[in-house]
């Protein structure tokens, strides 16, 4: 598909779902379903995915099952022009995958340095909490990557997106979504 055709295709597709690959075929699913079906990731490696799952969940409870990792991974695999990530509007320079690889690497590196070789996903809940509290204030030692406060801001925003930025999220908060053009799924 050339660029313009693909764009038209995306526009016409069930809005609210994202394209994932199942057995070599593109299917449209919500990130939550993609996660539930354990679909293969396209961009992030298993370590990065584990870190993002753990970080997402620690930032916003529910983010892991809501599919934060499948959401971000899928978004990183499409052209920046089509991406829906907060990174897009915060002046991050495409390809956004570079930012996420650096950010997730910095999280794990700083965690390993602080907790005797254990990555962020291996930390106990209280340790994760302390780590994030320092991270958001740019106070972590051995942080090597984009500013830790900015990484906190963007990953937290991704987690908020999948938990609260959806029709399900509004329902969970008990407030009406009232869409003009409703996403055709709960995404």
């Amino acid at each position: 598909m050339d660029d313009m055709q693909r764009r038209a295709f995306i526009k016409g597709a069930a809005i609210g779902t994202l394209a994932f690959t199942v057995g070599g075929v593109e299917v449209f699913l919500t990130p939550r379903l993609a996660r539930a079906q354990n679909l293969p990731l396209r961009t992030l490696n298993p370590d990065q995915a584990a870190t993002l799952d753990a970080m997402g969940e620690a930032l916003v409870p529910g983010a892991k099952d809501a599919g934060i990792t499948h959401f971000v991974d899928q978004q990183l695999s499409i052209p920046a022009e089509d991406a829906l990530l907060e990174a897009r509007i915060m002046n991050v320079r495409p390809p956004f995958a570079n930012f996420y690889r650096a950010a997730l690497g910095a999280v794990d590196g700083a965690s390993q340095a602080k907790y005797g070789g254990r990555g962020f996903a291996q930390l106990a809940a209280a340790e994760q909490h302390d780590f994030i509290d320092l991270m958001r204030q740019n106070k972590l030692e051995n942080w090597k990557g984009p500013g830790s406060g900015f990484v906190y801001f963007l990953l937290r925003s991704d987690a908020v997106d999948v938990v609260y930025g959806t029709m399900d999220g509004y329902a969970h908060l008990g407030v009406p979504y009232q869409a003009h053009i409703a996403p055709t799924t709960s995404w």
Binding site: K11, E86, G165, A179, P183
Partner: peptide, 11 residues
Amino acid sequence: DLISSDIWGRR
């Protein structure tokens, strides 16, 4: 194209 969604609104 104006989908009522903060996520899609970034497009």
